[in-house]
Every structure is written in C-alpha cells, then in structure tokens.
C-alpha cells in the first residue's frame, strides 16, 4: 500500500507511478470490438422494445428472474476469483492462482447449468427464435452471451493448464489478458440481466 518497496536509487519520490493497462493490448482491441457488438445489440433491443412495449412486458414476465439473478451472482463470484488469481500470481503463488481459476471455472460451469435448465424450460413451451421479437431478442442476446461465457471458460482452462505446468515469462500477461476478457463477459451480463429480465 506504500511506495517504499520501489527501491529505485534515482527515484526522487515525486514521479507518479506509470499508468498501466493490465493485459495485452491486442485483447483490449478485441474487447472493444465485442463491447461495440453488444452495444449495437442492446440499442437494437431498446428500439424494438419501444415499438412493442406490451409484447416485451408480457414476454418478460415469463422469464425466470431467479435463474437470471443466480447467474449474475455466479458470474460476479467468478470474476472475484479471477481477480484473486491474478493477485496470487503477482505475489509469486502460481499454485494458489491456479486454484482460484478452478473456482472461477466452477462458477462458469454453474452458469452453464442454470442456463441449460432455463432454456430447457423455455424450449419445452415451444418458444423459439421465431416466436416473436421479444423471444428473438431474449434467446439471441442470452445465447450470444452464453457463447462468450463458454469462450471465457476455454481461455481460463488454458490459463489454468499453463499455470499448472509452471508459469513462464509471459504467463502473467496472458493471465491478465484472459482476466480482462472474463470481466468483459461479466460487464455485459450486468447490463443484460436488468434489461432483459427485470426492466418494465
């Protein structure tokens, strides 16, 4: 919490610490592209909803808010573990870091399970992309997001594997990149949940 550990001989003590982006710049370019795609999707939802308020409100009431809230908790908990994984690797504890990644992966897995049950219930009612505009958006947005969760889990699994085999010089940067991506998936859901499940 203090700067005394920066035992640089030439430090005058006045230079502010360098601002630093965690992770590879390439992943941030990609995150921006993804955020843009979701932004367009969200705005499209808003526009479509404004044109069919009743249809959207009726459809929304049929959604499983408990599942949505549970999934929010799972995602933010997963993110919390990922933050801890990064901190542990920085602290020179790759084993602990790998453990936290496993916990995050478990949260992601929980998200998938909840989603599968949620979809199963909906599909059993014969709801599909072609049912109406609300369900089109509900399925499209959540499925598009779900695939991001899956991709995020693949990334975390790869990172876990490389941590387990012993970290190299680029492992921290890779972990930071993967973490940034995982948090992005979280960030999107934080908008998606109130928008699709709650806001009437």
């Amino acid at each position: 919490m203090s700067t005394e550990s920066l035992a640089l001989p030439a430090t005058t003590g006045t230079a502010p610490p360098e601002r630093r982006l965690a992770g590879d710049l390439a992943i941030w370019v990609f995150i921006c592209a993804e955020l843009l795609a979701f932004a367009v999707f969200f705005v499209a939802y808003g526009v479509a909803r404004a044109r069919h308020v009743d249809m959207f409100n009726t459809g929304q009431l049929t959604l499983d808010r408990n599942a949505g809230a549970l999934n929010t908790v799972l995602l933010i908990t997963g993110s919390w573990f990922v933050v801890q994984a990064v901190a542990r690797l920085r602290g020179g504890d790759p084993g602990g870091s790998a453990g936290r990644l496993l916990l995050a992966l478990a949260c992601g897995g929980g998200f998938l399970v909840v989603k599968v049950f949620e979809y199963k219930a909906k599909f059993a009612l014969g709801i599909s992309l072609s049912t109406d505009t609300f369900y089109m958006f509900y399925i499209s947005l959540t499925f598009f997001h779900l695939m991001h969760v899956l991709l995020g889990m693949v990334i975390l699994a790869l990172l876990w594997n490389s941590l387990r085999r012993g970290p190299g010089p680029t492992t921290l940067s890779s972990l930071e990149s993967g973490a940034a991506y995982w948090h992005m998936v979280d960030l999107v859901w934080i908008i998606l949940f109130p928008l699709v499940y709650v806001m009437r």
């Binding site: 919490m1 550990s5 920066l6 610490p17 920085r90 602290g91 602990g96």
Partner: peptide, 17 residues
C-alpha cells in the same frame, strides 16, 4: 496504486476488490 508495479511480492488481493 503502487502495488501493481511493485517488484516485491504482494500476495494479498486488494481490499478494494
């Protein structure tokens, strides 16, 4: 905001997190 740069081990997750 120094810990991120610190070469010394800082195993703890920031309290803010």
């Amino acid at each position: 905001n120094a810990p991120a740069l610190s070469p010394a081990p800082s195993p703890a997750t920031p309290r803010a997190a």
